[in-house]
Amino acid sequence: MSTIIAYFKGIGQGLNTLWTGMKVTGYYFFHARKEIITMQYPDNRDTLKIPERFRGRVVMLHDQNNEHACNGCTMCEMACPNGSIKIITDKILNPETGKAVRIIDKHIYHFSMCTLCNLCVQACPSNALAMDNSYENSVYDRSELTFVLNQPGSKIRDNVKD
């Protein structure tokens, strides 16, 4: 008897789940004008809105005083799966304590090798890196894809820990 009940229950459940699925796709079909997410990119270039979480390329965040939060710990360099980040560090003497402090000279980023996996941004302990929303990043020469992320003349923010 229980197998018979299970048989009919199975039919009922099957029909119910099929109807649930049809409701979802049916809603999409009849609300296509509102719901379609395709962007016809070159046509709507003026009105194009890039989603906030879109990964364009890696940038280093600078504030209005041209200060960044990178202390050259090379966590991002180690996290990068394809070695597209190279950090050249430098040492300066802290005038107050007389100790040598590590700062970055150049944060070199090879966009040509980057897969935009976001691992460097996640690995950074001081949130110095981020992904921007840029697109149309193609260039005519490979050398133009190598960026120095820290802006010229920038320095590390005071409150960043070692």
Binding site: F29, I36, T38, Q40
Partner: peptide, 10 residues
């Protein structure tokens, strides 16, 4: 066309 609308494409 129908397939596209079901999948939120054009």
């Amino acid at each position: 066309k129908v397939a596209a609308f079901f999948q939120l494409r054009l």
